[in-house]
Write a protein that binds this DNA or RNA. Structure first.
Lengths: 205, 205
DNA sequence: CCTACCGATCGGTAGG
DNA sequence: CCTACCGATCGGTAGG
């Protein structure tokens, strides 16, 4: 599935009751939830199967391996976000405009996410089979860093360590997912407030 | 060990080469590092023992169980930070003063931490034996939230969702540890810049 | 999607 | 701090 297909699939899942989702999507949902709470190695394939309501070996009719489930989940996280920020980083608008545009898209994307992706930490990229996402994540980080450095160079931003800003942006995305999966939908105002918080923290004016 | 003893022990470890640390402290160091990169269930007791240079059953001469290692590490994280913020939150200074004072202490504490505590996520509190830290963490969160709410009520701060600010503060602490354990010591200026970033993001003026 | 089962690895114990 | 070993659980396969 392309990035556009992943985005369309999220919209379709959001408009369908979970009970009517395909088994494959219900596996993704329960695997994400259990990995977020117990970690990748703490969430066993038996835990996941049991949450879905099937037996453990039946999982392997839908995914080749446990890590293949994570590969699919990572595409909703790293792949989509990287495709988006690479596009925005290339734009020639002022850094503050580009950053605000990206943050609003980013926070909205995670606030609407049907899977609890919070267990997909950067450290997971070292598991065998997930190496491709280490590269994508490096591209995402480099793009966000370049927007921040542009803003510092143009005098728009304070000279805050970009790695601090990167960590802050990720933590706010996870907080959006937490609200969304706790059945507390995140309003447009709250997403805007969070983006403004980051912009104010950076801006010199 | 009391909170003060933990703080003193950190200073002692920082002034001693790792090779001269006690076996117990070297177990804490390697366990923290492996849990940060592979997760609690992904870091096996054999991995930890091997990193320390002993056999796996020898670990149990120093700690009663695997979770007991995490209990000790959590004291350097949650217990110390909670004791500190409870004290500051009670003060009657303006919210922005209290927040700045806490952030500077907090970022300095983590920037000097000899153990890589980044694997000690909130979700770990659900493991059997770690319930006490769920309560401490709730106290820490409530204290930070009350400082932010005070600032909103007094007109010092924008009405940013406190849970977003809490997530942001934690992410910056983890970033301080990352720099410190990558052997890139965090200067007082960088810690101050990070605290100012948070304050600017919140402040109305 | 199921039952039955595999070898590997897990945290922890016994005994020195 | 070691060797030897325990029952439990892991991810995954065979075969229907």
């Amino acid at each position: 599935m392309s990035t556009d297909d992943l985005i369309a699939h999220v919209e379709q899942l959001r408009s369908t009751p979970v009970a009517e989702w395909s088994t494959r999507d219900r596996i993704l949902r329960e695997a994400a939830r259990l990995i977020a709470t117990k970690g990748y190695h703490g969430a066993s394939t038996r835990d996941i199967a049991s949450a879905v309501g099937i037996r453990q070996p039946s999982l392997f009719n839908h995914f080749d391996s446990k890590v293949a489930i994570v590969v699919e989940l990572m595409r909703y996280d790293t792949s989509v976000a990287t495709a988006r920020i690479v596009n925005i980083a290339r734009d020639d608008a002022p850094a503050s405009d580009r950053l605000l545009r990206y943050l609003l898209w980013d926070f909205t994307w995670y606030a609407r996410m049907p899977f609890d992706l919070r267990g997909l930490k950067e450290e997971l990229h070292e598991e065998p089979g997930l190496e491709q996402f280490a590269r994508e994540h490096a591209t995402w980080t480099a793009s966000l860093t370049s927007i921040i450095r542009d803003g510092v160079a143009s005098g728009e931003f304070h000279d805050v360590d970009p790695s601090v800003v990167v960590a802050v942006v990720i933590s706010i995305c996870w907080e959006m997912i937490r609200s969304a999966t706790d059945d507390r939908p995140v309003s447009a105002k709250r997403r805007r407030d969070a983006a403004d918080f980051v912009l104010r923290g950076l801006s010199r004016s």
